[in-house]
């Protein structure tokens, strides 16, 4: 039996009166590449943010390798939605990636040569080394996404949460990113991705969670990625043609 990397119990989140997430129980085994799918407003981003403590849940708990999240922060890295920051901020690609090292540095201590080296390596991994000194507003959408990915890679975490990393990127970048994610899985890391494109789920992921305020289903893609669950999640009679 595999170890459980992330365990969510009775998680309920509400912005105002209406719950966005209702009573979520979720176990994510170590070493899977998991997609979270569901319609708009299903609470996919909210689930990630609640697990990471960015949002305060009304009820429920999150455990990372059997310990409370607060004690396991250094095991977790986060790639937010690209649109969540102002890309006109006066800084360079390298500087953004360096931010990934801030957590392990702690308060006050500045990044040194060691951190810079790690950041450069991460940039190299995502193919962005030639752009290290580029002002971030002058990067394309796909390049910005790669910078965000590099920032998470530099954290050298065990579990990666990514909020729609394929949004607004071209096919080349999408393939580059998915290859990096698959490499992470091969290295035994757990990767959790909010994903929109149902067609690519069987090709990219080995684990999937269907979410629509409540958890509909979670498990291996080959077992549970079927019309029945899709219909339950999206509310319409969904037919996805999975190529055999």
């Amino acid at each position: 039996m595999k170890k459980i990397a992330v365990k969510v119990d009775d998680l309920t989140v509400a912005y105002n009166y209406k719950p966005v997430l209702w009573d979520i129980d979720l176990e994510i085994p170590e070493g899977v590449l998991m997609a979270i799918v569901g319609p708009n407003g299903a609470g996919k981003s909210t689930l990630i943010k609640a697990i990471l403590g960015i949002l305060k849940p009304i009820a429920g708990s999150v455990a990372i390798y059997d310990k409370p999240y607060e004690k396991q922060r250094q095991l977790v890295a986060y790639v937010p939605q690209k649109g969540s920051v102002d890309w006109d901020f006066p800084t360079t690609a390298l500087d953004v990636v360096k931010m990934g090292t801030y957590g392990s540095l702690g308060w006050v201590k500045r990044p040194s040569q060691k951190e810079k080296k790690a950041a450069l390596e991460a940039l190299e991994k995502v193919g962005m080394l030639p752009f290290k000194n580029r002002q971030i507003s002058q990067l394309s959408g796909g390049q910005q996404q790669r910078v965000f990915l590099a920032r998470a890679l530099v954290q050298n975490a065990s579990i990666y949460f990514m909020d729609e990393p394929f949004q607004g990127v071209d096919a080349t970048t999408e393939i580059a990113i998915i290859n990096i994610l698959k490499e992470l899985r091969k290295a035994g890391k757990t990767v959790i991705v909010v994903h929109h494109d149902l067609q690519t789920v069987p090709e990219y992921f080995d684990w999937v969670t269907f979410l629509n305020v409540k958890k509909i289903a979670t498990g291996p893609v080959k077992d549970i990625f079927n019309d029945d669950n899709l219909t339950k999640t999206y509310g319409i009679n969904y037919k996805v043609s999975i190529q055999e």
Partner: peptide, 14 residues
Amino acid sequence: ILLFDADYTKTLGF
């Protein structure tokens, strides 16, 4: 880092 990305800053433990 707070100016650039507040949510991310939180996940780093600040």
